Amino acid sequence: MRIRLCLAALSLVGGAGLATLSAPTASAAACTDIEVVAARGTFEPGTLGFIVGDPVYSALKKKISGKSLSSYAVNYPADLSPTSAAQGNADLVNHVRNQAASCPNQRFVLVGYSQGANVVDNSIGISSAGAVVGSPIVATLPASVEPKVAAVLLFGNPIRALGKSVTGTYQSRTFDICAKGDPVCERGGGDTLAHLGYSDDADEAAAFAAGKV
């Protein structure tokens, strides 16, 4: 299953010919101090994502004390369809915008792995068009929400293979890791299994986020 996940992700460079997408209606969840919004990788199982989202959320619960945490799994196909990442982009922005309106004191930690990193990139205004399973931007978090995003945690981020990274407003709040040899995020990388080992980085990422909240 893990090998299939990686090889499938490598088989497509997405982005062309996207239709306009409308985000599904999202209702706000109960208000907590911090909500972890996670976009899983291509075909990745698990509640928030077996390789990244679930381990990061578990690590955050241990590192952040005195604050209540909740989580939201971005609702999108996470498959190889050309509109998959764009659907995730629309859902993430729609959910966070609604959640911020209903819970004005809530802060957010955005987590993205592989295609999910494309989803997060797009949502904070960094286009993943041309990256593996990427897409043009269809929605961005509004300026009113930007201060509420405490941290952005990205793993195996495909835009890095294009020589891009998170810059601007969110740069200082971003943890963006690419394992050595990971062909999804490293141009010329040849170690496909490196793309599947990011669970080992969950603790470091959680420590980074804990320092921002």
Rank of each mutant, 00 (worst) to 15 (best):
Pro104Trp: 10
Lys63Asp: 12
Ala85Arg: 06
Ala100Tyr: 11
Gly41Ile: 00
Asn94Thr: 14
Val56Gly: 02
Glu35Arg: 15
Pro45Ala: 07
Tyr72His: 15
Pro45Glu: 04
Ala101Arg: 14
Cys103Asp: 08
Ala39Tyr: 00
Leu92Cys: 05
Gly46Lys: 02
Lys63Arg: 15
Gly49Glu: 01
Pro104Ile: 11
Asp33Ala: 14
Lys63Trp: 05
Ile51Trp: 03
Ser65Thr: 15
Gln99Leu: 11
Tyr76Lys: 05
Gly66Val: 09
Ala38Gly: 04
Gly46Gln: 01
Pro82Gly: 01
Cys31Gln: 09
Phe50Pro: 00
Gly46Asp: 03
Ile34Tyr: 14
Lys67Tyr: 13
Ile64Ala: 06
Phe43Trp: 15
Pro77Ser: 06
Asn98Thr: 14
His95Met: 10
Lys67Leu: 15
Lys67Thr: 03
Ala38Ile: 04
Gln87Tyr: 05
Ala39Glu: 02
Leu69Gln: 09
Lys67Val: 04
Gly46Glu: 00
Ala73Asp: 11
Ala38Asp: 02
Val36Thr: 13
Leu92Arg: 00
Val52Arg: 00
Val37His: 00
Val37Leu: 01
Ser58Leu: 13
Asp91Gln: 13
Pro77His: 04
Ala90Gly: 01
Cys31Leu: 12
Ile64Cys: 07
Thr47Pro: 00
Pro45Thr: 08
Ala101Asp: 09
Ser65Asp: 10
Ser102Trp: 04
Leu48Glu: 03
Ala100Gly: 08
Arg40Trp: 02
Phe43Arg: 06
Phe43Cys: 02
Gly41Trp: 08
Asn98Cys: 05
Val56Ala: 04
Leu69Thr: 06
Thr32Tyr: 08
Ile64Phe: 12
Ser102Lys: 14
Pro55Cys: 07
Val56Asn: 03
Ala59Asn: 08
Val36Trp: 11
Lys61Ala: 15
Asp54Glu: 08
Thr32Met: 04
Ala78Cys: 10
Tyr76Thr: 11
Gln87Trp: 02
Thr83Glu: 14
Val93Gln: 01
Thr47Met: 09
Pro55Glu: 06
Asn94Asp: 12
Ala39Val: 02
Pro45Ser: 10
Pro104Phe: 12
Ala86Thr: 10
Arg40His: 06
Glu44Met: 11
Tyr76His: 07
Glu44Ile: 09
Ser81Cys: 03
Pro45Met: 08
Ala73Glu: 13
Gly41Lys: 07
Val56Ile: 15
Thr42Cys: 11
Ile51Met: 12
Ala59Pro: 01
Ser68Val: 04
Cys31Ser: 10
Gln99Tyr: 12
Asn98Gln: 14
Pro104Asp: 06
Asp79Lys: 08
Ala101Ser: 15
Ser84Pro: 13
Leu69Asp: 07
Lys67His: 14
Gly53Cys: 04
Lys61His: 09
